[in-house]
Nucleic acid binder design. Structure first.
Lengths: 96, 96
DNA sequence: AGACTAATTAGGAATATTCCTAAATTCAAG
DNA sequence: CTTGAATTTAGGAATATTCCTAATTAGTCT
């Protein structure tokens, strides 16, 4: 859970996640979309992988990264637990 | 949005948020719940305040911090946009 | 195998985060 | 207005993050 939110805490990593929503992408294509060195992007991809947010799979010469929606949903569940969406019946005020 | 996810990226800050779900708490009471110095907790409260996640209000001798649910919902909206919950009609596959 | 392409690892500098103790601030109440 | 309690600010050490360039690995293709 900690690695997850830590991964989400960097703008470049969030943008990578956004890019991958449309489908898996090669490491090089992701790197090309940023004004940063490829190794730097590899580092961010590693952070996302550690967090379970993406998974790599080889595709011929290149490696494609796929977004793991389930990990995003974990973070979502945590936040929903605080907006009251996941609130227990007993805790509610509007009890009749 | 960046300050928001950055604020959420530290376990102590997430735990503070969880504590405040039950209602506003004094800075000292929050600090007492952790095995850390009070100034350290003040620092975390400042980060949460910068992110709009909490707001301080004086209550006699002490200062109570209140959770700002709307800020949590911002983060929630961002994540929902990637799980497909906020997906546009045109993007869906199960179109009939 | 050898050359080429895709991607990662290594090493290191700059910067940011986290946490501490000590000092300052702010307010309440005698 | 002084004392005391609640809280924040200041300053600084230890650690972590972010980013770079150079070197390396892994895989493709002739």
């Amino acid at each position: 859970m900690n690695a997850l939110f830590k991964a989400l805490s960097h703008p470049v990593r969030r943008r990578i996640i956004e890019m991958l929503r449309k489908g898996p992408m090669a490491s090089g294509d992701i790197a090309a979309a940023f004004d940063m060195s490829w190794p730097t992007i590899t580092g961010h991809l590693n952070a996302l992988k550690e967090a379970g947010l993406v998974s790599p799979e080889r595709d011929g010469a290149s490696i494609r990264y796929r977004l793991e929606i389930s990990a995003v949903e974990e973070a979502l569940a945590f936040l929903m637990a605080m907006t009251g969406t996941g609130q227990r019946e007993d805790d509610r005020e509007d009890r009749s």
